[in-house]
Structure formats: structure tokens, C-alpha cells
């Protein structure tokens, strides 16, 4: 029973990380949004699994909320933005694909190294997934740094948020519902603010390339 649980956790975590890695080699916002939808879906599935095996009813609610927010609502807003900025779909990163993949590999290794004491300490059957979640956090940060278009950075931020949520679920069997609700609200607010910013940036510079912001310095 426990081994099946732990296998499912590792499988789910790996999928979550892989959907994150898609950002590194696919080009085009549509692909990113799809990857984010799948990642969020898998994340809510993992949450539900932990709820099922850990006998925690609350986690079903969290899983449902996660799916509705990150699998349905935010992607819809993202698609609307994508249509708006259709002319800017080509995304050229600062770092090319091959290098990005190598760096990401190193970051995931780093994630393993960092979480080792946590994994050693934990008795939970879910512990094997934690390094993958940490890896996703680091890789998402790398995405945010290395991409130019604001839309990509927003998706990178949302994936980072997913990584943290996954870490929380795996590490502690989920945080209390009320905290989780607060985090949802936080994500939604953060996303809306970023959305407004992107529209503003687009209005000011006629582009969502954040390099343009350099011009603000004087």
C-alpha cells in the first residue's frame, strides 16, 4: 500500500517537473499554457492522491480548488492575453535550448543535494518526490530569468508557485485548508497584478519585451 503510494507520488512529481521543463525547449506561448494546464492537473491529482492515502478529507477540497484555479481559470486568462499579443508569439530566450537543458539538469541535481537532509529526516512515504519539487522551483526561477517576454515570465512564476505547492503537499501532507485558501487568493492576486502590469508595459512600449524596461533608468 505504502509503496504504491510512494510510487504514485514520485510519478506525479516527475510529471510535474517534466511539464515544467517543456518551457525550456518548446517555442510558443500556446505550448506553454498547455504545459501549465497539464502540470496543474497532475498537481491536483497528486494532492488528491495524498488526501486519499493520508486520509485527509481537506486535501480533496484543495485539489479541487487547485484544478479550478490553475487548471481552468488562470489558463483562460492566459489564453486571452496570448490572443491580445498574438504578434509577439516568437520568443527568443537569452540562453539557447541546449544550454538551458544542461543548466536545468544541474539545478535539479542541486535540488537533490539541498533536500537530502529533509529527505533523510522525513518518515513520510511521499518524501522521494520532494527533491523533484525543489528542482521545479529552481528550474522555474531559471525560466523567469532567462526569458524576455513578460508572458513567459508570468508562466514561469506560476510554475514556481506549483513547485512550492507540491513541496508543501509532499513535505507535510498539505497545509491547513485555510492557509491553502490564502495561498490561492495570493496566487490569483499576484497573477492579476502581473496581468495589469503586462497590459501597461504593452501600452507604454508597444511590446511585452521586458528588456524595454531598461529605458526607464536614467
Amino acid at each position: 500500500m505504502d509503496s504504491a503510494f510512494s510510487q504514485l507520488c514520485v510519478l506525479g512529481s516527475s510529471l510535474v517537473l517534466i511539464f515544467g521543463l517543456i518551457l525550456l525547449w518548446r517555442r510558443g506561448v500556446t505550448a506553454y499554457i498547455n504545459a501549465f494546464v497539464w502540470q496543474s492537473t497532475v498537481l491536483s491529482a497528486v494532492t488528491a492522491t495524498v488526501g486519499y492515502f493520508g486520509n485527509d478529507r481537506e486535501l480533496y477540497w484543495v485539489a479541487g480548488g487547485l484544478f479550478l484555479l490553475k487548471g481552468v481559470a488562470i489558463p483562460r486568462l492566459l489564453r486571452r492575453m496570448e490572443r491580445r499579443f498574438a504578434a509577439e508569439r516568437e520568443l527568443e530566450p537569452y540562453v539557447n535550448t541546449a544550454t538551458s537543458l544542461v543548466v536545468s539538469g544541474l539545478l535539479v541535481l542541486f535540488g537533490y543535494a539541498i533536500t537530502r537532509p529533509l529527505v533523510a529526516l522525513s518518515q513520510l512515504p511521499t518524501r522521494a518526490g520532494m527533491p523533484l519539487a525543489m528542482g521545479l522551483v529552481l528550474v522555474s526561477l531559471f525560466v523567469v530569468i532567462s526569458r524576455k517576454k513578460a508572458l513567459t515570465q508570468v508562466i514561469g512564476f506560476l510554475m514556481l508557485e506549483n513547485g512550492l505547492a507540491l513541496l508543501a503537499v509532499l513535505g507535510t501532507y498539505g497545509i491547513p485548508l485555510i492557509v491553502e485558501l490564502g495561498v490561492f487568493l495570493d496566487v490569483l492576486m499576484g497573477f492579476l497584478v502581473m496581468q495589469i502590469f503586462i497590459y501597461q508595459i504593452h501600452e507604454t512600449f508597444e511590446s511585452i519585451d521586458v528588456e524595454q524596461l531598461n529605458r526607464l533608468r536614467h
Partner: peptide, 25 residues
């Protein structure tokens, strides 16, 4: 330090995070 580039600031934050994690570990 203030290059004016958003990416540069993000790099600072990430590096700070990595250094802190390394030190803590």
C-alpha cells in the same frame, strides 16, 4: 548594481536564494 534590467534583478534574487540554500545546507 542597479542595471535597470529586470532580469538582472531576478538574477540577484536567485543567486541570493541559491547562496542561502547552500549555506543552510
Amino acid at each position: 548594481l542597479q542595471g535597470g534590467s529586470v532580469h538582472l534583478y531576478l538574477v540577484y534574487m536567485t543567486l541570493a536564494l541559491l547562496v542561502l540554500l547552500t549555506v543552510a545546507r
